[in-house]
Design a protein around this nucleic acid. Sequence first.
DNA 1: TAGATTGTTAATCGATTAACAATC
DNA 2: TAGATTGTTAATCGATTAACAATC
Lengths: 213, 213
Amino acid sequence: MSKAKSGNISPSVIKRLPRYYRYLGELKKAGFIRISSRELSERMGLTASQIRQDLNCFGGFGQQGYGYNIQQLHQEIASILGLDKIKKAILIGAGNLGRAIANHMSFEARGFQLIGIFDKKESIVGQMVRGIPIRHIDNLDEFCRENLPVIAVLCIPSEEAASVVDQLIKLGIKGFWNFSHYDLSQYQNIAVENVHLGDSLMTLCYNVTHSLK
Amino acid sequence: MSKAKSGNISPSVIKRLPRYYRYLGELKKAGFIRISSRELSERMGLTASQIRQDLNCFGGFGQQGYGYNIQQLHQEIASILGLDKIKKAILIGAGNLGRAIANHMSFEARGFQLIGIFDKKESIVGQMVRGIPIRHIDNLDEFCRENLPVIAVLCIPSEEAASVVDQLIKLGIKGFWNFSHYDLSQYQNIAVENVHLGDSLMTLCYNVTHSLK
DNA sequence: TAGATTGTTAATCGATTAACAATC
DNA sequence: TAGATTGTTAATCGATTAACAATC
């Protein structure tokens, strides 16, 4: 169906896919049927050229003289992103951040199902977060062997990450959503998405500082 | 002191600054005194060329034959980022995510001081989060006029964001740390740092999906 | 001084934009 | 058919890397 092997797609294009998906979802919800690359470009603040270029990495989803069918394109992008095949996820670290993510995030709408939460702190083991009990980290091995999660959300400090990550990779984890500062680039064939909130806040600090004058 | 006007610096360079700052902080903490661009490049997974190029946007911080003084460079970058001039911040939306950010984030280490938290839900008004009382959103005007915050952390749904953002800009807010999906690109001369956690998770979904085979 | 490493210019690479023929 | 808009190639722009003279 898609015209290109997925391996060739540039990271810049991949990073834009969720945004396309989001905008198309809103248009669909608002009852629109079709959209041209020009109209979408104006809504999203991109060029029409870039949109056509991006979409054509995966196939010709449009129709000359018409544009794109919103419903169909939305679904195509979901499939490209892999949102339609739900993968199991676990979360390591049930502190403030870990709980907020567990509670707040629609994992299901993004291709994942959260099936386990782990922490090393005895006192919070057994507490429920979004219907999932916090398990002690000592049970990680057993749980993973039984349930075979493929991604792990890391909400622990860097110091603790190193050993847990090695363990998780041995247990078959293929991707990390990394909220820690631990550097995961050393691991081969593992998908990593870093969320460095501190870095983001410092970038804002730079931009505010240098626009205030 | 710096050789370039800040306006000329490319976004790619700016995005890397917090990471340099972080690595230099760790090296400093570990007791290292000097580092060459080559050594730093190996630790960070960049090229030495890029590091020298990046740093030279702001001035010649190194010394031929020696490298860079870690303590000095760390401080220079803090000053470039504006971390040394603390700015007042408020947080809008004290749900799971808002609370987690208020509790979890070291604002002070990133150039900000969190001085107020607001929500529209009567039942949580008065609750303390990290020593800060949750105020009703109706008091936003008065609070801002008295305390003059310059940045706002948006932890509310898109639907609610539109009107609050207009209000905040009128009240003098110059920058947004935006966790909502509300599109802030329409506002001129306002610094915006978007954190789209859902997009990040979908990007991970793509990468896991396409590396699993 | 000799060795090391920067600052900086030039070359390369990749990503974005423009243009237009193909086609619905 | 005529008008609109895509898919795709070519041109431009920006960012990264390589190279090396300057210099500590």
